[in-house]
């Protein structure tokens, strides 16, 4: 019997729950693997997919979203060795798994913490409740391709947002492998869309897209790029999370900042009756 030929993998994009090649047909080489090089039209398709997913995902119960995030942690646990094989430190993989669980727990608690029954001078119930912003563009941290990625995606989606992620350009393999985890975790298609390629090329299209409601620039480490993306985002008043001035320790307690960055507060007045 002859020796088996190895099956070489082509890493593709993750858009709308499917794994398409780039519309442009381009790819680039990372660690001897071909990785899709996304174009502006892939950004466009990803935003369409993300927008289509908003209704179902934000309308799902918080309990259900939490269960799905927990399921992602389970599936990630099962592929732990695969991520280590891609060069991730075991401690990073474990922290990424724990981060999913941590954010999963917040799904049905965030409204208690950030919602409120406001005292008003009148016979009304006055209730404030946090609601998702909508479609969030995310420039993922280039230096922490798994833990950093999970740390920016999980807080955005747990509250009901959908995301279009520009993965780490230099180390995209963990992001695409994470997409395989997401695709098998009951996460509805389109909630997370992952594009690999050059942030300088796709970032401006995502930042200027009028159907994106917020953008997380955590991964835009070059000051000039971050500045131009923030300017492009101003046209439709996107919520913007600026890159951190100091390097982020992804192992530290994440706090609730990223969770609340993509929430809108809705306040309703309701007559009390008698």
């Amino acid at each position: 019997m002859s020796d088996r030929l190895a099956v070489r993998k082509t890493y593709k994009l993750y858009v709308g729950g499917k794994f398409p090649r780039s519309e442009s047909g381009r790819s680039y080489l990372v660690q001897d693997s071909n990785v899709a090089l996304a174009s502006r039209k892939d950004v466009r398709d990803a935003v369409v997919a993300a927008r289509a997913a908003v209704k179902g995902w934000s309308g799902a119960t918080a309990y259900n979203r939490g269960q799905i995030l927990y399921r992602i942690a389970e599936m990630l646990e099962g592929r732990r060795d695969q991520f280590i094989g891609l060069g991730e430190a075991p401690a990073d993989v474990d922290a990424a798994i724990d981060r999913w669980v941590w954010y999963a727990g917040w799904s049905d608690k965030i409204a208690q913490v950030y919602g409120n029954a406001n005292p008003v001078a009148g016979p009304y119930f006055n209730l404030s409740a946090p609601e998702p912003t909508g479609v969030v563009g995310v420039v993922a941290p280039p230096d922490s391709p798994l833990l950093g990625l999970v740390s920016v995606v999980a807080p955005a989606i747990v509250t009901g947002n959908t995301v279009v992620v520009l993965a780490s350009e230099g180390q995209p393999l963990p992001a695409v492998t994470l997409a395989e985890v997401l695709a098998t975790s009951d996460l509805p298609g389109g909630v997370v869309n992952i594009l690999t390629g050059r942030v300088e090329e796709t970032g401006p299209w995502l930042a200027a897209h009028m159907d994106v409601n917020a953008i997380d620039l955590t991964g835009a480490l070059e000051a000039e790029l971050a500045r131009s993306l923030e300017e492009a985002a101003a046209d439709n008043l996107k919520r913007v999370v600026r890159p951190s001035a100091t390097p982020i320790d992804w192992h530290a307690d994440p706090g609730l900042g990223r969770l609340t960055a993509f929430l809108e507060t809705k306040t309703v007045w309701h007559p009390k009756g008698v």
Partner: peptide, 9 residues
């Protein structure tokens, strides 16, 4: 305009 629009508009 040179950038993508959205159905909201």
């Amino acid at each position: 305009t040179g950038h993508y629009s959205g159905p909201d508009y």
